[in-house]
Simulated scan of single mutants.
Amino acid sequence: MATQDTAPHDGTLRVLSTSDLAGIDISLADVVDTVEGAYRTLHAGLSDNPRKLTVKPQDGHSVSYAMLGRDGTRNVVAIKTSYKHGLDKGRDEQHYYTALTLYDDVTGLPVAMMDCSRIGSLRTPAVSALLARECAAPGARSALVIGTGTQGRLALPFLLTTLPDLDRLMLFGTHAEGIAAVRAQLSTYFPGRDVEVVTDLRAAAADADVIVATAGAHTPAAVESTWLKPGALSILVGHGLAPSTLHQADRVIATSEAQMNVTGTDMADSEGKLPAVDTEFPPVIAGLTAGRHSGKERIFAYNSGLVVTDIALGHRFAQLALAQGLGTEVPLWQ
């Protein structure tokens, strides 16, 4: 699908702000379908998703990423930048900025530049939900989310979108406002459902069929491999899992092994090494590789995010924004 319907033809750039994107209504199922389609296109060889570039000062107080990609279905080229400052400080003192710029590869014109925070807050839990759908043990009924930040708040609604039979929902968090936000989001998308806030992390992990670790770097949570039940699926988004869950897993899956080797160094062993993955996720989504081989396998999945999923979801938002007349056109190159 070409993007002439979203690209301005006078050389201006449509800028979509945080508030513009906040007003766009999109269903969780729409997000999941869009992200899944991006994975299928990538596996088919129609998209390009090069390894991300990373810049980090020696003292580790900030980190920056740049990600270039091309969506071959939408004929869109894009670059995403991400900058986080204050990693040595508490959550309230940190600054985070991320932006996505889209170009129409048919017309050669810019489509839009947008704040990418909402796109990331939707894309990442959607990927975790897809990982859970493909890799959770048959009959999975319990899920544990670790962390109540941006990624933790939509983790359960997305999990229920792909695994509707989950009947025990658990949450481990240390911030009261974050716990309240998780409950509010769950109630918004699934009225009548509630989450059980747990304090005994080991006991909760031992009962969980699916664990999604989204916590920040300062979390006290560190689930060990020996705590996990047979068949458990552990998905790492941020922090909350000890390296043993990776190194002692029966099967390791990554959205991208190259990106795991860049951003997953905190999970390295005593020699600074990460194990090889058994499969990347795109061929699993395409149905060419099994998510799991038995109900007893303990599976570790690394969700680092791929820029092609940001491109697909960003383009979807650009379409919806244009239909609603949202955004500001800036004559950047005039």
Rank of each mutant, 00 (worst) to 15 (best):
G45V: 09
P164K: 12
D269V: 09
V212D: 08
N49I: 03
E36V: 05
L228G: 05
D71N: 06
P125M: 00
T188W: 11
L322Y: 12
T263E: 14
D48M: 13
V277K: 11
T263D: 14
L28Y: 03
S117Y: 09
A181E: 14
T18A: 15
T73K: 12
I24W: 06
G149W: 07
T162S: 05
T73E: 11
L13S: 03
T3N: 15
L326P: 04
I285Y: 03
S19K: 15
L122K: 01
T18F: 14
T226H: 15
A184R: 10
F300R: 05
I146C: 04
F172G: 08
D200L: 09
G295N: 09
A2S: 15
L87T: 01
E224V: 08
K296I: 13
S256T: 13
R14E: 08
D207G: 14
V182T: 01
L21W: 01
Q259P: 11
S304P: 13
R202N: 11
R133C: 10
D20F: 03
R292F: 02
T73Q: 11
S17E: 06
T148W: 02
S121L: 11
T148G: 08
R183Y: 09
L13E: 04
P138V: 04
G11C: 08
G72K: 00
I26L: 11
G139V: 08
V197N: 10
D200S: 02
N261R: 14
D88M: 09
E224C: 12
P8G: 04
G305A: 07
R292Y: 06
H239K: 08
P331E: 00
S304H: 12
P138M: 00
F172D: 02
S270G: 15
R133H: 15
P57Q: 02
A258E: 12
V212W: 00
S17W: 08
L154I: 05
G272R: 00
A203L: 09
I119P: 09
D167F: 04
A66Y: 10
H95M: 13
T101G: 15
V330M: 08
R251E: 02
Y103E: 06
R316P: 04
P220W: 06
D278L: 02
E177F: 03
H315M: 11
